[in-house]
Design a protein around this nucleic acid. Structure first.
Lengths: 215, 215
DNA sequence: ACCGAATGTAAGCAGTGATTACATAGGAGG
DNA sequence: CCTCCTATGTAATCACTGCTTACATTCGGT
């Protein structure tokens, strides 16, 4: 009966409670204001106790990131499965929307995932694996889009892939990095970002013919 | 003769030497490993001395960021003036190239500018001003491109502007955040990023017609 | 019932940003 | 030349941090 809350010498489920306390601290004072001592205090435990479960602060933050990443991929996949797979471009649009929407709705969680200096991204199979999984889904969508002529075959898949990732990642990072502080006072930042996403996907879809001869 | 190096009780030009020491620390151990005590030690001065010139650690890091920003805008403007203003799209391409090239060549400096948690970006007129200046140049290029038909008028300037900024910012942040650790082993990350830039600018130029009717 | 493993505590170390009180140097004005 | 003010440095100290080591306690399997 490890689930009992006798709350004696042994805590019971310190791990999850430490993660929860950490998330609370992040939401209150930002990702840089996290301290494992404070997390221990909030869990009602000694300052050294967390180190029994996490080798160091980075490991604790990485655990938080893994939990956040799980929710992110869930959001993306839900958005993706809600879209039919008739048009690959719409699949890419769904991924972009899901990714952006989740980041806007959960800025603190996204902050943890994105702030690579405070987590051990490459040391976490879950983080690298789920990132790679999304990448492969996008690569498949691009390939199908080009096979059906929906995406120009002149666009190198690798470069297109990287462009799309950089775009959406940059958009989210600009958000959490505070780039929209004074921007677009007449228009909510979220709306501006959504419009940018639509424009970017439309560009991939090749909707905009111009005179290619230049000036 | 304040420039003399008598090196007595008063240091002479502690400010610049502290900034130099800070940059050295960043290049050695990363932006998060900076400590003002260590910077003071490297400058041969007491741990409290830096606080006579910088209100806090953030102010010191912001000074470093301002110096870095100056070099970034210089790089961008050089690349821009080296390109004729005949084709606005090529102007955008030049900005993107200059921005990316500088970030790749000076990752530590870019890291300081980008890591908004460690500097006071919005409190620095130089940082906000030079950022806004580049933004205005891009906005002008977009307007001219649309006026000449070189860029599709169907693309909302605001959204296009934001897309371009998010793209290039995301690319650079992916670089400094270590997203290219295992990627593209067969192809240098710098080359892959350059190709992504070319593709993105080409998309703005509308080079890629597809069947818009969908599948 | 016992014993080892898991999990907690207590105490302490080195390092951090920051503040306060005090010491020193240099330049302006008499 | 001397004095005084201000800029700039030092010394000492505080609260806090991540982390380690030695010790205490509890749980679970045999």
């Amino acid at each position: 009966m490890t689930n009992s809350s006798r709350a004696a010498y042994h805590h019971g489920n310190l791990v999850e409670e430490l993660i929860a306390a950490t998330i609370g601290m992040i939401e209150e004072k930002g990702v840089d204001a996290v301290s494992v001592r404070e997390a221990a205090k909030r869990a009602g435990v000694s300052p050294a106790a967390p180190f029994r479960h996490f080798a160091n602060k980075t490991a604790l933050m990485t655990a938080v990131a893994e939990q956040a990443m799980g929710r992110l991929t869930l959001s993306v996949q839900q958005e993706l499965s809600a879209t039919g797979d008739a048009d690959p471009v719409e699949g890419l649009r769904a991924i972009a929307r899901g990714y952006l929407a989740w980041a806007l709705a959960n800025p603190t969680h996204f902050d943890v995932i994105a702030s690579r200096t405070v987590i051990d991204f490459h040391g976490s199979p879950k983080l690298t694996g789920e990132t790679e999984a999304i990448r492969l889904v996008m690569l498949d969508l691009i390939a199908r889009g080009q096979a059906s002529g929906r995406i120009s075959a002149a666009l190198a898949p690798d470069a297109l892939m990287l462009s799309a990732r950089a775009f959406i990642y940059g958009l989210c990072r600009m958000w959490i990095d505070g780039h929209f502080a004074e921007w677009h006072v007449e228009k909510p930042a979220g709306q501006a970002m959504a419009e940018a996403v639509e424009l970017f996907i439309d560009m991939i879809g090749g909707r905009h013919a111009t005179n290619l001869s230049g000036t």
